[in-house]
Protein backbone atom coordinates (compact mmCIF):
# COMPACT_ATOMS: atom_id res chain seq x y z
CA UNK A 1 0.00 0.00 0.00
CA UNK A 2 2.70 2.45 1.00
CA UNK A 3 4.60 1.41 -2.09
CA UNK A 4 1.63 2.11 -4.29
CA UNK A 5 1.07 5.50 -2.73
CA UNK A 6 4.68 6.46 -3.29
CA UNK A 7 4.57 5.31 -6.88
CA UNK A 8 1.46 7.40 -7.50
CA UNK A 9 3.03 10.39 -5.80
CA UNK A 10 6.05 10.06 -8.06
CA UNK A 11 3.92 10.04 -11.14
CA UNK A 12 2.14 13.12 -9.93
CA UNK A 13 5.42 14.89 -9.20
CA UNK A 14 6.97 14.16 -12.55
CA UNK A 15 3.78 14.99 -14.40
CA UNK A 16 3.18 18.27 -12.59
CA UNK A 17 6.88 19.22 -12.36
CA UNK A 18 6.44 22.49 -14.29
CA UNK A 19 3.76 23.62 -11.84
CA UNK A 20 5.67 22.58 -8.76
CA UNK A 21 8.77 24.65 -9.38
CA UNK A 22 9.31 28.10 -10.81
CA UNK A 23 12.70 27.17 -12.32
CA UNK A 24 13.81 25.71 -15.62
CA UNK A 25 15.79 22.46 -15.05
CA UNK A 26 18.59 23.49 -17.35
CA UNK A 27 18.78 27.15 -16.38
CA UNK A 28 22.23 27.60 -14.95
CA UNK A 29 23.72 30.44 -12.99
CA UNK A 30 27.49 30.55 -12.76
CA UNK A 31 27.42 33.02 -9.89
CA UNK A 32 25.33 30.85 -7.60
CA UNK A 33 26.86 27.41 -7.74
CA UNK A 34 26.60 24.85 -4.92
CA UNK A 35 24.38 26.94 -2.67
CA UNK A 36 23.02 25.05 0.32
CA UNK A 37 19.28 24.48 0.68
CA UNK A 38 17.39 27.69 1.43
CA UNK A 39 13.92 29.16 1.09
CA UNK A 40 14.65 30.01 -2.54
CA UNK A 41 16.19 26.67 -3.40
CA UNK A 42 14.74 24.00 -1.14
CA UNK A 43 17.25 21.39 -2.29
CA UNK A 44 20.07 23.89 -2.91
CA UNK A 45 21.80 24.43 -6.24
CA UNK A 46 24.16 22.19 -8.17
CA UNK A 47 27.68 22.66 -9.54
CA UNK A 48 26.33 24.88 -12.32
CA UNK A 49 23.90 26.86 -10.21
CA UNK A 50 20.80 24.95 -11.26
CA UNK A 51 17.99 24.33 -8.80
CA UNK A 52 18.38 20.78 -7.49
CA UNK A 53 14.69 20.37 -6.57
CA UNK A 54 13.69 21.26 -10.11
CA UNK A 55 16.21 18.86 -11.56
CA UNK A 56 15.12 16.04 -9.30
CA UNK A 57 11.48 16.62 -10.30
CA UNK A 58 12.28 16.67 -13.99
CA UNK A 59 14.76 13.86 -13.48
CA UNK A 60 11.85 11.76 -12.27
CA UNK A 61 10.37 12.01 -15.74
CA UNK A 62 13.53 10.76 -17.37
CA UNK A 63 14.25 8.04 -14.87
CA UNK A 64 10.68 6.76 -14.93
CA UNK A 65 10.66 6.93 -18.72
CA UNK A 66 13.83 4.84 -18.85
CA UNK A 67 12.27 2.38 -16.44
CA UNK A 68 8.99 2.01 -18.27
CA UNK A 69 10.18 1.96 -21.85
CA UNK A 70 12.98 -0.49 -21.08
CA UNK A 71 10.63 -2.79 -19.23
CA UNK A 72 8.01 -2.38 -21.94
CA UNK A 73 10.51 -3.66 -24.48
CA UNK A 74 11.60 -6.50 -22.22
CA UNK A 75 8.02 -7.54 -21.52
CA UNK A 76 7.09 -7.39 -25.17
CA UNK A 77 9.99 -9.58 -26.29
CA UNK A 78 9.77 -11.88 -23.30
CA UNK A 79 6.05 -12.42 -23.71
CA UNK A 80 6.34 -13.08 -27.43
CA UNK A 81 9.16 -15.56 -26.93
CA UNK A 82 7.42 -17.26 -24.01
CA UNK A 83 4.15 -17.56 -25.86
CA UNK A 84 5.69 -19.05 -28.96
CA UNK A 85 7.92 -21.42 -27.03
CA UNK A 86 5.22 -22.57 -24.68
CA UNK A 87 2.37 -22.79 -27.12
CA UNK A 88 4.09 -24.54 -29.96
CA UNK A 89 6.74 -26.47 -28.06
CA UNK A 90 9.00 -28.70 -30.15
CA UNK A 91 12.02 -27.26 -31.91
CA UNK A 92 10.77 -23.71 -31.50
CA UNK A 93 10.71 -24.20 -27.78
CA UNK A 94 14.17 -25.73 -27.60
CA UNK A 95 15.68 -23.08 -29.83
CA UNK A 96 14.15 -20.16 -27.96
CA UNK A 97 14.92 -21.58 -24.56
CA UNK A 98 18.54 -22.20 -25.54
CA UNK A 99 18.66 -18.54 -26.58
CA UNK A 100 17.34 -17.64 -23.13
CA UNK A 101 19.99 -19.82 -21.51
CA UNK A 102 22.70 -18.18 -23.56
CA UNK A 103 21.54 -14.66 -22.82
CA UNK A 104 21.36 -15.50 -19.14
CA UNK A 105 25.03 -16.43 -19.15
CA UNK A 106 26.22 -12.96 -20.08
CA UNK A 107 26.87 -10.47 -17.37
CA UNK A 108 24.06 -8.21 -18.54
CA UNK A 109 25.79 -5.04 -17.46
CA UNK A 110 28.79 -5.92 -19.65
CA UNK A 111 26.56 -6.25 -22.71
CA UNK A 112 24.87 -2.94 -21.95
CA UNK A 113 28.21 -1.21 -21.49
CA UNK A 114 29.63 -2.61 -24.69
CA UNK A 115 26.71 -1.51 -26.80
CA UNK A 116 26.24 1.94 -25.25
CA UNK A 117 29.91 2.80 -25.37
CA UNK A 118 30.32 1.69 -28.95
CA UNK A 119 27.22 3.39 -30.26
CA UNK A 120 26.54 6.47 -28.22
CA UNK A 121 24.98 7.15 -24.86
CA UNK A 122 21.60 8.44 -25.95
CA UNK A 123 18.56 7.88 -23.79
CA UNK A 124 16.96 5.81 -26.56
CA UNK A 125 19.86 3.42 -26.89
CA UNK A 126 19.93 3.08 -23.12
CA UNK A 127 16.27 2.15 -22.94
CA UNK A 128 16.46 -0.21 -25.86
CA UNK A 129 19.54 -2.06 -24.71
CA UNK A 130 18.27 -2.43 -21.15
CA UNK A 131 15.11 -3.87 -22.66
CA UNK A 132 16.99 -6.17 -25.04
CA UNK A 133 19.03 -7.65 -22.22
CA UNK A 134 16.20 -7.98 -19.73
CA UNK A 135 13.51 -10.13 -21.32
CA UNK A 136 14.70 -13.62 -20.40
CA UNK A 137 12.98 -13.85 -17.04
CA UNK A 138 9.68 -12.81 -18.56
CA UNK A 139 10.06 -15.36 -21.34
CA UNK A 140 10.57 -18.19 -18.86
CA UNK A 141 7.63 -17.13 -16.74
CA UNK A 142 5.27 -16.79 -19.67
CA UNK A 143 6.36 -20.10 -21.12
CA UNK A 144 5.73 -21.88 -17.85
CA UNK A 145 2.27 -20.35 -17.59
CA UNK A 146 1.45 -21.20 -21.18
CA UNK A 147 2.51 -24.80 -20.68
CA UNK A 148 -0.12 -25.25 -18.00
CA UNK A 149 -2.70 -23.09 -19.69
CA UNK A 150 -2.66 -24.80 -23.03
CA UNK A 151 -3.98 -28.04 -21.53
CA UNK A 152 -6.79 -26.25 -19.68
CA UNK A 153 -10.44 -26.82 -20.62
CA UNK A 154 -11.15 -23.39 -22.06
CA UNK A 155 -8.17 -23.59 -24.39
CA UNK A 156 -9.04 -27.07 -25.50
CA UNK A 157 -12.62 -25.94 -25.98
CA UNK A 158 -11.57 -22.99 -28.10
CA UNK A 159 -9.47 -25.29 -30.18
CA UNK A 160 -12.38 -27.67 -30.50
CA UNK A 161 -14.51 -24.99 -32.14
CA UNK A 162 -11.72 -24.34 -34.63
CA UNK A 163 -10.22 -21.09 -33.34
CA UNK A 164 -6.96 -20.08 -34.98
CA UNK A 165 -3.69 -20.29 -33.03
CA UNK A 166 -3.38 -16.54 -32.97
CA UNK A 167 -6.87 -16.16 -31.62
CA UNK A 168 -6.28 -18.72 -28.91
CA UNK A 169 -3.06 -17.11 -27.90
CA UNK A 170 -4.37 -13.59 -27.83
CA UNK A 171 -7.82 -14.23 -26.44
CA UNK A 172 -7.34 -17.08 -24.07
CA UNK A 173 -3.76 -17.59 -23.12
CA UNK A 174 -2.20 -14.15 -23.02
CA UNK A 175 -4.60 -12.59 -20.52
CA UNK A 176 -4.11 -15.48 -18.13
CA UNK A 177 -0.36 -15.60 -18.50
CA UNK A 178 0.19 -11.95 -17.79
CA UNK A 179 -0.31 -11.78 -14.06
CA UNK A 180 3.10 -13.17 -13.08
CA UNK A 181 4.63 -10.90 -15.67
CA UNK A 182 3.24 -7.93 -13.83
CA UNK A 183 5.39 -8.71 -10.81
CA UNK A 184 8.55 -9.11 -12.85
CA UNK A 185 7.80 -5.94 -14.76
CA UNK A 186 7.34 -3.93 -11.58
CA UNK A 187 10.70 -5.12 -10.29
CA UNK A 188 12.17 -4.51 -13.73
CA UNK A 189 11.31 -0.82 -13.62
CA UNK A 190 13.26 -0.54 -10.39
CA UNK A 191 16.16 -2.42 -11.92
CA UNK A 192 16.25 -0.20 -15.01
CA UNK A 193 16.36 2.95 -12.88
CA UNK A 194 19.35 1.51 -11.01
CA UNK A 195 21.04 0.49 -14.24
CA UNK A 196 20.69 4.01 -15.60
CA UNK A 197 22.27 5.42 -12.46
CA UNK A 198 25.15 2.98 -12.76
CA UNK A 199 25.67 3.99 -16.38
CA UNK A 200 25.60 7.64 -15.33
CA UNK A 201 28.25 6.94 -12.74
CA UNK A 202 30.45 5.64 -15.54
CA UNK A 203 29.68 8.76 -17.59
CA UNK A 204 27.64 7.00 -20.27
CA UNK A 205 24.14 7.41 -18.89
CA UNK A 206 21.62 10.05 -19.91
CA UNK A 207 23.67 12.98 -21.21
CA UNK A 208 23.49 16.61 -20.11
CA UNK A 209 21.64 18.89 -20.07
CA UNK A 210 18.79 16.39 -19.58
CA UNK A 211 18.60 15.63 -15.85
CA UNK A 212 18.23 12.06 -14.68
CA UNK A 213 18.52 10.96 -11.09
CA UNK A 214 21.59 9.03 -12.06
CA UNK A 215 23.46 11.94 -13.56
CA UNK A 216 22.51 14.37 -10.79
CA UNK A 217 23.77 11.88 -8.24
CA UNK A 218 26.95 11.35 -10.24
CA UNK A 219 27.60 15.08 -10.33
CA UNK A 220 27.04 15.12 -6.59
CA UNK A 221 29.52 12.38 -5.81
CA UNK A 222 32.42 14.81 -6.14
CA UNK A 223 31.04 16.94 -3.32
CA UNK A 224 29.72 14.28 -1.00
CA UNK A 225 31.19 15.78 2.13
CA UNK A 226 30.36 19.45 1.75
CA UNK A 227 27.60 19.80 -0.85
CA UNK A 228 25.65 16.87 0.57
CA UNK A 229 22.39 18.19 -0.88
CA UNK A 230 23.52 17.48 -4.39
CA UNK A 231 23.87 13.74 -3.82
CA UNK A 232 21.39 13.23 -1.00
CA UNK A 233 18.22 14.23 -2.82
CA UNK A 234 18.65 12.35 -6.09
CA UNK A 235 20.05 9.43 -4.09
CA UNK A 236 16.98 9.38 -1.88
CA UNK A 237 14.75 9.72 -4.92
CA UNK A 238 16.28 6.58 -6.42
CA UNK A 239 16.24 4.77 -3.11
CA UNK A 240 12.61 5.54 -2.35
CA UNK A 241 11.42 4.83 -5.86
CA UNK A 242 13.19 1.51 -6.20
CA UNK A 243 12.01 0.55 -2.75
CA UNK A 244 8.45 1.50 -3.60
CA UNK A 245 8.47 -0.52 -6.80
CA UNK A 246 9.82 -3.50 -4.94
CA UNK A 247 7.15 -3.24 -2.29
CA UNK A 248 4.49 -2.96 -4.95
CA UNK A 249 5.99 -5.98 -6.69
CA UNK A 250 5.99 -7.96 -3.46
CA UNK A 251 2.43 -6.95 -2.79
CA UNK A 252 1.37 -8.05 -6.26
CA UNK A 253 3.18 -11.32 -5.89
CA UNK A 254 1.43 -12.10 -2.62
CA UNK A 255 -1.90 -11.12 -4.08
CA UNK A 256 -1.44 -13.08 -7.28
CA UNK A 257 0.23 -16.17 -5.94
CA UNK A 258 -2.51 -18.43 -4.57
CA UNK A 259 -0.08 -20.94 -3.12
CA UNK A 260 1.14 -18.55 -0.46
CA UNK A 261 -2.32 -17.72 0.68
CA UNK A 262 -3.13 -21.11 2.00
Amino acid sequence: MIGGAIVLLLFACSFFAPFLTPYDPSHLDAWHVLLPPSARHWFGTDELGRDVLTRVLYGARVSLKVGFVAVGIAVFIGTAVGLVAGFYGGWRDSLLMRLVDIMLCFPTFFLILAVIAMLEPSIWYIMIIIGLTGWMGVARLVRAEVLTLREREFVLAARGVGASDLRIIVRHILPNALSPVLVTATLGVAGAILTESALSFLGIGVQPPTPSWGNILTAGKEYIEFAWWLSLFPGLAILVTVLAYNLVGEGLRDALDPRLNR
Partner: peptide
Protein backbone atom coordinates in the same frame (compact mmCIF):
# COMPACT_ATOMS: atom_id res chain seq x y z
CA UNK B 1 32.08 19.13 -19.23
CA UNK B 2 30.91 22.07 -17.15
CA UNK B 3 32.30 24.43 -19.77
CA UNK B 4 30.36 22.62 -22.45
CA UNK B 5 27.15 22.82 -20.45
CA UNK B 6 27.44 26.54 -19.84
CA UNK B 7 28.19 27.16 -23.52
CA UNK B 8 25.27 24.91 -24.41
CA UNK B 9 22.87 27.17 -22.54
CA UNK B 10 24.33 30.37 -24.03
CA UNK B 11 24.14 29.04 -27.57
CA UNK B 12 20.61 27.83 -26.97
CA UNK B 13 19.60 31.36 -26.07
CA UNK B 14 20.72 32.62 -29.48
CA UNK B 15 18.99 29.76 -31.25
CA UNK B 16 21.76 27.19 -31.66
CA UNK B 17 21.23 23.61 -30.56
CA UNK B 18 24.53 22.18 -29.32
CA UNK B 19 24.74 18.61 -28.10
CA UNK B 20 27.52 17.35 -25.87
CA UNK B 21 29.33 14.06 -26.12
CA UNK B 22 32.04 12.85 -23.78
Amino acid sequence: LKTAQIIQQRLRSVGIDMKIRV
